[in-house]
Design a protein around this nucleic acid. Structure first.
Lengths: 230, 230
DNA sequence: CGCGAGCTTGACGTTGTTCAACTAGAGTGG
DNA sequence: CCACTCTAGTTGAACAACGTCAAGCTCGCG
């Protein structure tokens, strides 16, 4: 059996979620005493849709995919990088995870007892306010994805995905993508073959330069135009 | 100028949202003093995507559609009946409405000052907990819709929509639908013509009996089977 | 009685998927 | 170091799903 491992005390942790900034020293101590820090290797399952959500997860380090499991294929909800909470939709109602999460890179995850979260919600209003803010940001992102998925054709959807990686995840015009073509396809709501053709098309038209998993956005304005349905 | 109209005091209102049950007499009085009750006729716009969200809306009576405005067509997020709050995603962050809402039936809506909501969130932890629960239920519904939209064909999606009306809205196997074909199409993510053909198909195969806006679910188990991709 | 919006129907075109074959590269064992 | 295998990725052709266009229908309403 593994020995519980904790790199830092929460108090001095620099990668805290914004809602933890509203906790006092005692409260942070309570978090510390009710968490486990777990390291995951790339490809490992961090949480499984349908399993018991006894803990809220905090992604301290790494990159993960958050996805819904469908009958035959999955739907990737978001690619989430460090500093974000996972499992918030499980806070009330059925205490089960509503999605699965898998690590893309070696990741560090704090498992925080869900009852500690509930305690703070009932006792610390600042914490609740911040939590609601985080949940709402997520909801608004979902709305954008609804529009992308239901109203755009393949190039438009893939343009959205590329801009998402460039702006939100890697914050650069060139990046080495950790996702497989299959994952990219599930994130853009299309088949692997169609994705491959779309990539080729973007590459041939000098919109994006693609070599394997390395992407470089060449013509950003064109990409934005395509995203707005071109 | 219209005279502010209030049918009941909040204290004795029987159609309260679940989060208001955690307010005391004084707090309910505060809600009462900071709300307007507005009646809408069928077809009227209750709130407009992108406009300033100074108030959270409570649907006291009626039936409305909540939808995202796309470039050429809309995407209906949900059909919402009385007892539900509208505008919660606008609570923090940009104070604008992220969707539009239109009445299907004559409806009564309480406009509650958004600052009253924020005040309760910062002072009443029970209220926050209940609010988070409501927001999360909505998120989980969105997940189901993601799977429906991205992984099912037209019959599957329309079966989902019919079951939604039967189970969630009308709670009966037969109902008179307030939605136009166009709205039904935007709710099922397809064109009006395809919707029309799908309806005809369901009707011809004795799965649902349809006469104009009157729907009767004849073979529920078949409908569920189709929903699970048949 | 005629007008018009909403609805239906058929023919056709487009978009995207599926299937199958092929290719490139990474790991394995001799 | 080289053949062997396995998997991820690419490509082409056939096909299915779905949208678009145009015409016709229905029914409420002036």
């Amino acid at each position: 059996m593994a020995i519980p491992y904790k790199e830092d005390r929460c108090l001095i942790c620099k990668s805290k979620s914004s809602c933890f900034t509203h906790l006092n020293v005692d409260e942070l101590g309570l978090v510390d005493n009710n968490r486990l820090e777990v390291k995951y290797r790339s490809g490992e399952l961090i949480c499984k849709q349908g399993s018991f959500a006894s803990h809220i997860l905090f992604l301290k380090k790494g990159l993960v995919k958050v996805y819904l499991e469908g009958k035959s294929k999955n739907h990737i909800l978001s690619i989430t990088s460090k500093g974000n909470l996972i499992g918030l939709p499980s806070l009330f109602g059925d205490p089960i995870f509503h999605y699965s999460v898998v690590a893309y890179e070696d990741s560090a995850v704090c498992h925080i007892d869900i009852n500690v979260f509930k305690k703070f919600i009932h006792e610390n209003a600042q914490f609740s306010a911040e939590l609601i803010k985080l949940i709402n940001e997520n909801t608004i992102n979902n709305y954008e994805r609804f529009l992308s998925v239901t109203q755009k054709n393949m190039p438009g959807r893939f343009a959205d995905v590329l801009l998402y990686f460039s702006d939100q995840i890697y914050k650069s015009t060139s990046f080495s993508l950790s996702l497989s073509r299959k994952d990219l396809a599930e994130f853009s709501s299309m088949s692997v073959e169609s994705l491959s053709r779309t990539i080729k098309d973007f590459n041939d038209n000098n919109i994006v330069s693609v070599k394997g998993k390395n992407f470089e956005i060449v013509d950003r304005s064109r990409l934005i135009e395509i995203s707005l349905h071109g």
